[in-house]
């Protein structure tokens, strides 16, 4: 809790997806969004790291490699707070189903791997409401890695965890970094009651599972 109480009953519902890069979570939340829209529900979609206001500072920090684990964490939290207070919270008040492609659990995983204190980072985000449902797209590390790396994409410095000094090779560093993130995610499954989805299954099978689970947990007709 920061300036606003997280306990206040909001009519909207918050649904988050989490998982490694290459877990297919963005595809799944897109399909979920399409379904909800076509069925006529009030839906709002939000992504991690998309706010304009502090983007400049993030860019500057990343380019000049000024960021330490703590400032990296704080600047992302600032960015998230802006999006949370100006977009997410108002639409939750207005009674929308909010779909979040990554939520603060992404920060919990990455920042702890970077060395931030687990308790500190959880408290840092305590101003934001926890999701009503979090789907965790669970895929073995090697599958996630091959999905991302087979195309030999251009990896960014922080994305590959190069700041952590695991390896001087960008791809090697990325693999080690993702491995640690995966471990953090697994620790959080019970702590935050994630719903695990087997992300090795075909996309349509996963999507059917996601839709069924959502209907069990949220009284969807209220959001028409």
């Amino acid at each position: 809790m920061a300036f606003t109480s997280t306990n206040k009953e909001l009519s909207g519902r918050l649904i988050a997806v989490e998982g490694l890069d290459g877990s297919g979570k963005s595809t799944q939340i897109y399909l979920l969004k399409r379904w909800l829209e076509l069925e006529g529900y009030k839906v709002f979609f939000t992504e991690w790291n998309s706010s304009a206001i502090v983007k400049n500072a993030t860019k500057k920090g990343k380019k000049r490699q000024l960021l330490t684990p703590t400032t990296f964490s704080l600047i992302h939290s600032t960015d998230f707070a802006d999006r949370y207070e100006r977009q997410i919270l108002p639409v939750l008040h207005a009674g929308y189903l909010v779909l979040a492609d990554r939520y603060f659990y992404t920060a919990f995983a990455r920042d702890v791997v970077r060395g931030c204190d687990r308790e500190w980072i959880r408290k840092l985000y305590s101003y934001a409401r926890s999701p009503d449902v979090t789907f965790f797209f669970n895929v073995p590390l090697d599958i996630a890695l091959s999905r991302i790396l087979d195309g030999r994409p251009r990896l960014k410095y922080h994305e590959a965890g190069m700041d952590l000094g695991f390896s001087s090779d960008l791809y090697e560093s990325f693999k080690i970094f993702q491995g640690h993130i995966y471990e953090e995610y697994l620790r959080m499954v019970d702590e935050f009651s994630f719903i695990k989805i087997d992300a090795t299954k075909p996309p349509d099978v996963q999507q059917q599972g996601v839709r069924n689970l959502l209907q069990e947990r949220i009284d969807l007709p209220r959001y028409k």
Binding site: T71, A81, E85
Partner: peptide
Amino acid sequence: LVGPELEEAKQGNVLSPTTLSLFYATDFAD
């Protein structure tokens, strides 16, 4: 890291309270 951006943000009252607070925390931590 964020000194100039923070100064700018203070000129127009555009940031919500938690955002401004964390922006200052970033400035401090840097």
